[in-house]
Amino acid sequence: MIEIYLFLIFMIIAAVIAIEIKNLLAAAIAVGAVGFSAAILFIILQAPDLAIVQIVVEILTVIIFVAVIFRTTDIDKTVGKQLTSMQILGIVFYGFFALLFIIISERILNTLPPFGSPIMKVAGEYIKLGLPKVGGTNIVADIILDFRGLDTLGEATVLFTSAIGVLAVMRKAGRK
């Protein structure tokens, strides 16, 4: 229980560092710290599939960030600058919105079951039928590949669409 809080606090600190630091390469590494502590938290929360996918995706994300920083610039020139009045107004409004968001989400989260005891009305069926109907021993793999296979089809569609988008934006031929 206490280790979950420790890792969440570490994630929050790393996120603040990633947003406020001047060197963009250090910001990319801080994003990596957030992602890898998320992977460790997934292991603590008994989700090994999520931890594996998170580690792979996090390495990919940090590599893409570093490649983009090498192609552009690695100093954030907007950090030490004087704020304009419109920006200060925006930050004040953001503060009000954040307070409102926390209050509303506190009310909504109170309607959820407390931490550590989920309802599992749908998931109970999946756990019961996973081995006899699908034949896979990993229930998460049963769900994403069979019970909710259409979700996975949509995921693959989004992934390949974004890959086509990256190729179309980054290609050299045909540009002036």
Binding site: A47, D49, I139
Partner: peptide, 19 residues
């Protein structure tokens, strides 16, 4: 077991996020 349904949804969301 822990609830496998949010894990399946998050597995989809992580992969879409990197795209």
């Amino acid at each position: 077991f822990v609830d496998p349904l949010p894990q399946a949804l998050v597995l989809t969301a992580i992969v879409i996020g990197v795209g």
